[in-house]
Nucleic acid binder design. Sequence first.
DNA 1: GTCTATAATATGATAGAC
DNA 2: GTCTATCATATTATAGAC
Lengths: 192, 192
Amino acid sequence: MYIYSMRPQKVTDQNLLEGLMSVIRSKGYDGSSLNDLANSTGLKKASLYHRFPKGKKEITSAVLMYVEQWVELNIVGELTDRTQKPNERLKSVIESIDDLYEGGEKICILRALTMENNMELFGKQLKNIMTSWIAGFTNLGISFGLSEKESKNKAEQTLILVQGSLIVSKAMSTLEPFQKTLVLINEIYKIK
Amino acid sequence: MYIYSMRPQKVTDQNLLEGLMSVIRSKGYDGSSLNDLANSTGLKKASLYHRFPKGKKEITSAVLMYVEQWVELNIVGELTDRTQKPNERLKSVIESIDDLYEGGEKICILRALTMENNMELFGKQLKNIMTSWIAGFTNLGISFGLSEKESKNKAEQTLILVQGSLIVSKAMSTLEPFQKTLVLINEIYKIK
DNA sequence: GTCTATAATATGATAGAC
DNA sequence: GTCTATCATATTATAGAC
């Protein structure tokens, strides 16, 4: 339905969410002001409220839904792609992870939002996203012929290593820990 | 020197820093207001400014100096204690880490402050603390008879694993990842 | 749908009494 | 050294024009 009085969106939902995400992941929830958020999108504050009536909470939640989709598509999707061999899937997903964090330059939005403060607001979404990640890698382990339990352990390990190495890379101001971790994740699945 | 007009401190430096640290590590830099900080200490905002004239930046920096000392004493100190065998040192330090993060309940202040925003203000201190941690564990590896390079790799790995597992534990609302990681760190040094 | 203007509140910071 | 009171600014949020 299109009503003549409606004006066209200045910014698409996708572009909006990309801008919002980039602010939140670098500044965190408390560190991102509505002006920061608006500036990153090209819209004004009041326009953001039109798109997200409940303000910052709704914005952050929408960004997390967007991240959830991204993980489903790029992590889970690639890891369960039956047209590719396990080795190829692993290679693809490691590239995706490398891109996502820009080689280790960027921190993870999951990390930025996993503050004790924010857990009540976003805990459920954060947990869902991590659960998806782990499920994807568990599937990979099984494809490699590992047991369910072993696969789940390794899957959880990938998440821990990525999150931890991003922090160490950031604090030590070198990409090496993250890059070494990507290599290590490869090795974790190549013991056989 | 004691001047008669001086009034006694209501709160000792140690208690002050403990309270401030607990707020900052759970709320982060942007999420900790001066009222939050004051409330955690029993002092009023204005009194905090008397102790820390430059405000929140100085408070956070002081807390990081306090953390630096803690790590030197409890991590580096224990790991380089020549009166104990390497195995005993490792056991002691893992207990200290378990206590520090309250079994995985608490997040790490290093993580809370490693936001892109804060790096200019606190990056140097964060880097120093992580460097100390890594140096301590590197020393342990050497005591176990490992090469310098191997020791450094394992040391960095302990830091990555602790940081990463704390995030996953928090988001998944289970202490298991952190607890399993403490066991894993033990195993890392017991390959021989 | 987007904007300017503005309200209401929170926050960082200071002044001055005790 | 600590407090109450206050200021200046930033922040979340809304009203209303276009």
